[in-house]
Structure formats: structure tokens, C-alpha cells
């Protein structure tokens, strides 16, 4: 692989980077996935894209950018797709697993900050927080929805986080082995927080930058979507 100009700036050694598996769940992301996955692949050779039964050409586009592409035969939701990617990464011997969004709102540069504390064995799980870091062009409505989500998490899961609903997370192998996402759809974000707490493994929040673009906003959750997620999550907790 040709040396990339970013490589020099990366605080992780090449050996560590080869042990990192970046899992990206993609649903109807043919426009963004090749560039997003390709951007990650430059620094991290092991990128796992899980095409969650997209109706467009996400599967084909992902193969031009990622080293591993998996396809759900039918759409099962983001939580299910992430779990598939995590299971696959573990089967390939991943030592660190990072979950990354497919719509380009996360920055490749932030992956190193997510993985470094785990590589140094300071903690087993890192959770990206957009409220600790810079956030570019976040609309007020999105901000209010996220803050409410955070209060909800604080109340229901008894955990104090600044940003509970960020798709940017990193896990050590032993943490990833304990993760079994059962809520297939969007409510998995709250579920992961519960799992993180249940594992008893040390976690830390890491400031990350989120870029809000027209594309990523259209792909994100609206306030009504957030309400639906709360219902799914609560039903899941009651009926587990």
C-alpha cells in the first residue's frame, strides 16, 4: 500500500492500525459510502461495511472503498448491522473495533483518539461525544433532540454522558465480545449504553468533531423519529 500523507500524523503505529477494524453500517448510502469507506481504508486497512439490505447500489459502491463488505439479505436495522459487523471483525481477529457512520459525519482523524486510550489499556470502551468536541453546523432542533436524548439516558440508564447517541464508538476485543445488540433498529444506541454499563468495563468519552451536512442531516433522526426510538427502547427493556 502506498504511504499516505496522513500516515505521518497518526499517533497510532502501523501495527496497531492493522488491528483496528472499522465497522460501518450502511443503508441506501451509495452516494457516500465509497468515499467514506475509502477515506478510512487509507489509514486503517480493515474496514467492514455492512450493507443492511439497501435497495440502491450500496453493496457495489462499498466494494470499491472497503476491504470487507457484508450484505444483509433483508433490511434488519442499524443495530443489527453493527452487530453483524462486530461479529465478523471478531472472527477476523480484530483487537480494536470502531463503529463509524456511513454518511460522512465522522472524521477519520478522530479514530486515532478513540483507539489510543484503549491501545494504552486506559479503558476498554470509548464513546465519541460531539458536545465535548467541535460540532460544525448543528441545527438547533437537532441539538434539542440530542440533549433530550441525553437526559433520557441519564434518567433511564443512570449513566452520566454528554452525548449518548453518537455512532462513533470504539471497543477493545474483550469489550466487543461482550456486546450483543438485540434491538435491531435505532434504539440500539441506548441499548449499547446499557451494555457498556453492564460489562463493568471502564469507558471514557472522547471529543469528536461532527460535520453536519445536508446529506448527513437528511440521514439523521428527526424529533419524531427520536420519539419512536424511545418507545422501541422501552418496549425492548420491558420485554427482554
Amino acid at each position: 500500500m502506498p504511504a499516505d500523507d496522513n500516515t505521518a500524523d497518526c499517533i497510532l503505529s502501523e501495527n496497531v492500525r492493522r488491528d483496528v477494524f472499522v465497522v460501518i453500517a450502511a443503508y441506501n448510502e451509495e452516494r457516500a459510502i465509497e468515499e467514506v469507506a475509502g477515506g478510512v481504508t487509507k489509514l486503517y486497512p480493515n474496514v467492514v461495511v455492512v450493507d443492511d439490505g439497501s435497495r440502491d447500489r450500496t453493496f457495489q459502491a462499498a466494494q470499491r472503498g472497503a476491504s470487507f463488505v457484508l450484505r444483509h439479505a433483508v433490511n434488519r436495522g442499524q443495530g443489527a448491522a453493527l452487530q453483524t459487523g462486530i461479529a465478523f471483525a471478531l472472527s477476523k481477529g480484530a483487537k480494536f473495533i470502531v463503529t463509524f457512520d456511513a454518511d460522512g459525519q465522522h472524521r477519520v482523524e478522530d479514530i486515532q483518539h478513540m483507539v489510543a486510550p484503549i491501545a494504552k489499556r486506559d479503558c476498554d470502551i470509548t464513546l465519541g461525544s460531539r458536545f465535548l468536541g467541535n460540532t460544525i453546523d448543528m441545527p438547533t432542533s437537532r441539538k434539542i433532540t440530542l440533549k433530550l436524548g441525553m437526559l433520557f439516558t441519564r434518567f433511564v440508564s443512570q449513566i452520566d454522558l454528554t452525548d449518548a447517541h453518537n455512532g462513533f464508538r470504539a471497543f477493545s476485543r474483550r469489550a466487543a465480545e461482550k456486546i450483543d445488540i438485540k434491538l435491531d433498529r435505532m434504539a440500539h444506541a441506548s441499548e449499547i449504553i446499557d451494555i457498556v454499563q453492564a460489562t463493568g468495563l471502564p469507558y471514557r468519552e472522547i471529543p469528536v468533531e461532527i460535520r453536519y451536512t445536508e446529506y448527513s442531516l437528511a440521514k439523521g433522526q428527526s424529533a419524531s423519529g427520536a420519539f419512536r426510538i424511545v418507545i422501541q427502547y422501552l418496549l425492548g427493556r420491558v420485554l427482554q
Partner: peptide
């Protein structure tokens, strides 16, 4: 169904040839 879909997805994973094989 999710477990079945997952099983199939992992079994039929495509490894892209353009990157060096890890």
C-alpha cells in the same frame, strides 16, 4: 430472522482484492 441474516452475511462476506489481504 436477524440471526439468520447475520449468519448468511458473515458466510458470504466479500473480501475486496484491491487492498492487501489482512
Amino acid at each position: 430472522m436477524t440471526l439468520l441474516v447475520r449468519e448468511l452475511a458473515i458466510r458470504d462476506a466479500v473480501t475486496s482484492s484491491q487492498t492487501d489481504t489482512p
